[in-house]
């Protein structure tokens, strides 16, 4: 349920409580009423049906990514590839 995508705040219109946000290079309007006072230009928000539902915690995002990287380093997947599912793209 509930498709929501990370988008970066490009500018804020305080009068109407809206922002222009950038989703992977596509810019669009998003309503900020549910995250007001909490966000500024350059922040990331999660946008659901045109409305920002939360601010993305950049520190947490980076921290989790680091944990994932660590997991990668700690595993030797080359030899232990389950079911031989490692790809060899035929490109």
């Amino acid at each position: 349920m509930c498709l929501a995508v990370p988008s970066k705040i490009v500018s804020i219109d305080h009068e109407f409580c809206t922002a222009t946000v950038d989703t992977m290079g596509v810019s669009r309007e998003a309503n900020l009423a549910l995250v007001e006072n909490n966000v500024e230009v350059g922040d990331w928000v999660l946008v659901h049906i045109g409305i920002a539902m939360s601010k993305i915690d950049a520190e947490e995002a980076l921290r989790t990514l680091e944990l994932h990287e660590e997991l990668l380093l700690s595993s030797d997947i080359q030899e232990n590839d389950p079911d031989g599912k490692s790809t060899s793209d035929d490109g």
């Binding site: 990370p6 970066k8 950038d22 992977m24 290079g25 990331w44 993305i56 950049a58 995002a61 980076l62 990514l65 994932h68 990287e69 997991l71 990668l72 595993s75 997947i77 232990n80 590839d81 389950p82 599912k85 490692s86 790809t87």
Partner: peptide, 24 residues
Amino acid sequence: QPLTTDKLYSGYRNPDIIRAYSHK
């Protein structure tokens, strides 16, 4: 390092990490 669009999307779809999780 700062957060980027690429990290927020591709970072969580990295094939090597996916395979590492599968293994774990």
